[in-house]
Write a protein that binds this DNA or RNA. Structure first.
Lengths: 129, 129
DNA sequence: ATGAAAATGACAACCATTTTCATTTTGGGT
DNA sequence: ACCCAAAATGAAAATGGTTGTCATTTTCAT
């Protein structure tokens, strides 16, 4: 009877994915909620949170935290890079992170972990500040 | 009489530093507040937050975020390592991060940043889970 | 069409963090 | 020592992102 496994493409998940595509980069749950409703896509804030949560669980969406602790999301597969952020003015540079991937994979493997993921951010003061 | 010039060493900052030393690794503001008051160091939660803030500004303390967004703090200079955390059971392994130091330093230098710092954490599922 | 299960969303609850503000402490000038 | 202004403190209230609740709606297999 229950043959539904991974076919469940919840409507809300699709709406949220569409929103993330339109935004292109990172967006917070609340921003996403605004964007979606601005474009006559009626969807509740709670549902946006739930959709994001399930997309994160499904490894479709990445989550990371701004310095103030707010969660921001982006589509996985969007080229995986890291950020160099100026603590003073907020200027952000995208950094290639192949080294980090390897480091994380290796450290995980050495300790018998699977489904390895990682976060890595660099911060400092840019030359304009 | 008072020849300690510009040791603007606020009493609360010292209490908080002592707490961080005692804890040894990472601690949240609230944990710190508990620890301090448990040891008959009377200090308010608000003051703990303010002290941590000023210590972070003074580059005496590092701040990073747990996955749930809560801020955790540690003394700078406390042996610099990273964590491999099991998403399921919370088991944590300390990982050497020399590669990361170099990666961060280099990326910062290449982009004209100074006072480079970084965060990096690895997560996955441990073999017991 | 029908009933059960899943999904939805308005609203309330939660909780870490910040702000407010009244009070206390500190420290320099006299 | 004494004043007094500025800094520090902390209890309580406010803030704000996120999660829980629950009544209602939608989906879907029969």
């Amino acid at each position: 009877m229950d043959r539904r496994e991974f076919t469940m493409s919840k409507k809300s998940n699709n709406k949220v994915l569409a929103g993330l595509e339109r935004v292109g980069g990172f967006a917070s749950a609340q921003e996403l909620h605004l964007v979606l409703n601005r474009d006559s896509e009626s969807i509740g804030l709670t549902t946006v949170y739930r959709a994001l949560q399930s997309l994160v669980d499904a490894n479709t969406v990445d989550i990371l935290r701004k310095e103030d602790g707010e969660a921001i999301f982006r589509l996985c597969g969007a080229s995986h890079h890291h950020h160099l952020v100026c603590k003073s003015c907020g200027k952000t540079v995208e950094i290639e992170g192949g080294v980090i991937e390897k480091w994380a994979e290796q450290a995980g493997a050495e300790n018998g972990f699977r489904e390895i993921g990682h976060t890595a951010e660099i911060f400092g003061i840019c030359n304009a500040c």
